[in-house]
Amino acid sequence: MTDSRPQAKPLATGSSPSLEASASSGPIRAVKLKHPWRNVIAVVIIIFAVLFVLDASQRTAYDWPSVGKYIFDRRVSEAALNTLQLTVYSMIIAVTLGIILAVMRLSPNPVFKSVAWFYLWVFRGTPVYVQLVFWGLLAIIYQSIDIGIPFMQPWASFQTTAALNTFTLAVIGLALNEAAYMAEIVRAGLMAVDRGQEEAATALGMTWFQTMQRVVIPQSMRVIIPPTGNEVISMLKTTSLVTAVPYSFDLYTRTRDISAETFNPIPMLLVASIWYLFFTSILMVGQYFLEKRFARGVGDRKPEKSEKVSLATGVLSTVPDSTGALPLPIADKNGGDSR
């Protein structure tokens, strides 16, 4: 067993030709490159920012007392929760449907391919606002929803208005539109996985579905997650369009309704913006951890971590873990990781 650390040797030989360096052979001590303009520009920007903040805090038009009064207003916080729910539900549906559509588009089955292509054509080709208006008019187009065999007495029949409230319609509208975009993101991710991976899985006797589920999709996640985070944040803001359904209990519509009573729109816009920013900040943190999770085996994973696991095999039983914690037994590690 040769533990090949390729960088060790070339570095040593690479530095020897330089006589200067080999003469001192200690670490290089040199004057650091200075970046004076960076500091100047930073100072200028800070000055402008401070001036803007000071000015904004004194401007009456912003009406900060009203912002403070309404930011935790029950109507506003409930609307914020509604917006969050709209985002989460529609994204969950959109991601699921997007994966299905992407897999359909890449499948060898021509029927699946065409259906997925048609779906994308329709839902990506019309504005989400128009689609939301359509969903709002669903009850007028289809008064009742029947379940059963066509041209036969239905097994069950619902009044559309009773079965689907405006919140549900808003979720459906947002989700179905978003699914078209997610499908393209997922497709890009699936295509980014090396063909050899599929071949290796196939050669091991895995079925097409197993290959997708166990090998291709997990690897594509690394490519899929950053743009999906983008889509989630975009969705959070697109929820302000659900007034088209019309659903009026989301953050933006609610704050606008309040300002229609108070005749003071600017602080309510600030209230809405603060809430939106708060949610996007949380989503960005979530995205960071998801990206880390799916970067397993690639990128900047720290080598010590895998060293720790190899300790568990009992072969390299020399150094105890610096934290003093027992290294994970390998079997447990697999159990945790494979799901």
């Binding site: 091991l204 085996g297 895998s306 697999n334």
Partner: peptide, 27 residues
């Protein structure tokens, strides 16, 4: 499924290894 069953009896080693990068050696 039948084709997959035939393949599992035949091991294949590729020029570019094609290991699954998101899994450890043992995995």
């Amino acid at each position: 499924k039948q084709a997959a069953a035939q393949r599992r009896e035949i091991g294949m080693v590729f020029q570019k290894f094609n290991l699954f990068p998101h899994m450890t050696a043992l995995e």
